[in-house]
Amino acid sequence: MTPQTGEPAGGGALDTLPAEHRGRLMALAHEAAFPSTTRIFEEGDEADRFWIIRSGTVALDVHVPGRGRTVVETIGRGALLGWSWLCPPRHWHLGAESRGPVLAWEFDAAAVRSLCAERPDLGLALVTVVAETIGDRLRATRTRLLDLYGPPGSPEGGAGP
């Protein structure tokens, strides 16, 4: 996957893979284009694919009764979209929708899993990349749990200067 003009260097989730691994994986990829507000997948559906976003933004959401779809995070250029395909039960935990036009590389999860079974070294490298993404999102989520930008101290305390 050579970065296209306008794509940031070093941004793609697969860029850290050895060239040979990346080449084998990219051979399984095809281009996908989602017009704005396309539902890419829905919570609970079978997770049989994943994507690397080339341009545009995808919103991940949860359906909350009474509130409708609530966006929990957005991901952009270079990011891995979807990791539920890796571990059973292989159903999406969230829904995904394009925010504006999105271009992506789409991978068939079953084909990638077979390649991993055939090439354990490639499998380990890919799982490491996915784990890194999951780790990043977990750290980001924990940071948001701290509500760092919220009002400091208790409302009564007036703890600030």
Binding site: T57, A59, V71, V72, E73, T74, I75, G76, A79, D136, A140, T143, R144
Partner: peptide
């Protein structure tokens, strides 16, 4: 707009 921490 975007949702998430600034590092993303």
């Amino acid at each position: 707009g975007r949702v998430g921490v600034v590092t993303t």
